[in-house]
Design a protein around this nucleic acid. Structure first.
Lengths: 339, 339
DNA sequence: TGCTGCTGGTGTCACGTGTCAATAGCGATG
DNA sequence: CATCGCTATTGACACGTGACACCAGCAGCA
């Protein structure tokens, strides 16, 4: 038995054409969804393509269209929790169906090289999880690439994402359940990594105002015992000895706050109530078990996927209005032992 | 002032050629490092390319070479801890210098669609963090793509990665520090996600044998209190009431073990000693603070980057022998309160 | 018949690049 | 002077695709 050592040349549209007994351009048009060919011919070409396991060359296609069939997910560093991984899965699966390749790019915010790099890739679509400024988005769109925002229904870039606003509000309401507290927003140490901070803080502010409370303090909490303890101590010095209500950026930060409280001999939740975001597995394993806000990522992703779907049916105007998300379905309060 | 609304056509090699007053093929050859042109011409062409901000079209290049300049990092799902993100950073930075675009693909193990998808991308190189079987690797290499293994110096695919073996040994030695214990390897619940389990278990086995101990039990620990407790109880039923020494797959699993011990009223570390891997921030924040094995990811990555470097200087044979890693520098025991 | 319109399909161009045989110029050699 | 060899450079081709103008054949109609 002889083995061909050639790198297994892929079938091209030419091969399909020969096999189906038509011209190459016929193949191209049928495979791109041209309806005007009779059903019999279309079936024959499709069968031949199938039989030869034909997959159009990305390079060839990209060369002529000016776009590739790559979808780039641009994710800010700190965001990548375990749940986001599920989200990526979701998008990957859906896009594979549409013949797109999904690929992830991590980025620091306000990093110009990321923009260059994404532009170089000339992707069909960019899913932006909050890395780019609206100006950068425009540059990407100007190059013919679809930019799908996380905030699918934000009318203006300046509008804070209603989801993040709602997260802040839920956190505050839970913290205030057993009486008033001095509110604190515990941000990530590295502000550059935090695209969600400002809108969440805005939600916290609004809810605080409605309860007639002072505006929240906004310390940045490092993820180590010593640093977190030091920061929490400073917060106490500033806020006085009354009970604190701390909205954490995520469950990791919340755990840091719990650790710092333990270090300072403060009781949780009596002296320091804290609530995270994400419902990570670890957050439910530690003692005291974290109160947190769970986000239904798959649901959020499906909204994106719907927008992406427009890519496969090129030009055909599917109903691509971003459907309104029901916030109540996306967010869920998980009550633990820290509030 | 008139603004051009055109999608800002990129400069092509033709533009560079016109600007430098040479032919397009001259540009192509000089920019690809052909030495036989006189220094003056080379400088002129380079300057023109620079001035026009010329970047060769990936599509055009891919079409003719059959390869793209994309580097794909294939990462198994469960592996993606916070540190691996740093690793990706490292590779991205280094590859950007070489003109490569780094991109991440998540994968379940033994997933055929991942292979197809990677093959479709026709990347210049694939960095495999343990997703592909050696047979799949061969298929990728057959298509002309460089496959860079994490285990840079494994001579045979069947060889367990010495790093993982060493991790297992370090864990066991630390667990046995205060006397003999019944050893347990706490794996992830989903075995498909775990490329490192088998080699680590092998390290644990070897160390156990050298200490004259029984072979370890290998329960799979779910990441929730109820499930972890149930599993730990079963382990105890099987192992008897003597002290347990548990090597966890990572810090998250270790935290689950601690939670289960708490639930069962077992003392840590007296009744149940446990040690993780990764030194996550959270692991150092919880109480009791985790004992764990830290991996110097950047160091590991540099070994990979070195291999990748061969890609930019095409054909020129740089010294691409994977340099021997000093295990002692890569791994570090972090003693917490759980051993 | 001559014209129109429709159906089913084809030929050709353009995209941007890398490779390589070929060439023009030019001094040196026989 | 003819030939050779060397240097610097170029022209032409191939890669695989999508778009689009175009064509053959045929039916319908005045």
């Amino acid at each position: 038995m002889t083995v061909d050592l050639q790198p297994a040349r892929r079938a091209t549209s030419k091969d399909v054409a020969a096999s189906a007994g038509v011209s190459r351009s016929t193949v191209s048009q049928i495979l791109n969804g041209d309806e005007r060919f009779p059903a019999e011919t279309r079936a024959r070409v499709r069968a031949a393509a199938e039989a030869l396991n034909y997959r159009p060359s990305r390079a060839g296609r990209a060369l002529v269209t000016g776009l590739s069939d790559i979808v780039v997910l641009v994710v800010p560093h700190a965001t990548f929790g375990p749940h986001l991984q599920d989200s990526v899965d979701r998008i990957t699966g859906a896009s594979a169906t549409a013949g797109m390749s999904v690929v992830v790019r991590f980025a620091r915010m306000q990093d110009e090289t990321t923009l260059t790099s994404v532009l170089d890739l000339r992707p069909a679509a960019v899913v932006d999880f909050g890395v780019f400024t609206s100006q950068q988005r425009e540059r990407i769109e100007a190059s013919g690439t679809l930019v799908v925002p996380r905030r699918a229904y934000a009318t203006e870039a300046a509008d804070p994402d209603p989801i993040d606003i709602e997260i802040g509000r839920i956190q505050v309401r839970e913290l205030l359940r057993n009486g008033p507290r001095r509110l604190v927003y515990a941000a990530l140490e590295d502000k550059r990594l935090d695209p969600f901070g400002p809108p969440r803080l805005e939600g916290i502010r609004r809810e605080a105002r409605e309860h007639g409370l002072e505006l929240p303090l906004t310390p940045r909490i490092p993820l180590d015992v010593h640093g977190a303890t030091k920061t929490l101590k400073e917060v106490r010095d500033k806020a006085g000895t009354g009970p604190l209500g701390i909205c954490a950026y995520n469950d990791d930060v919340a755990i840091a706050v719990v650790a710092a409280s333990r270090e300072l001999g403060l009781r949780v939740p009596e002296d320091v109530a804290v609530i995270g975001v994400d419902r990570t597995a670890v957050g439910q394993l530690v003692s005291p078990r974290l109160s947190t806000v769970a986000i239904d990522q798959p649901l959020l992703m499906d909204a994106l996927v719907q927008e992406l779907a427009g890519l496969s049916t090129r030009g055909a105007d599917v109903d691509s209005r971003p459907h309104e998300l029901d916030l109540g379905r996306v967010l869920e309060l998980v009550r633990g032992e820290t509030t």
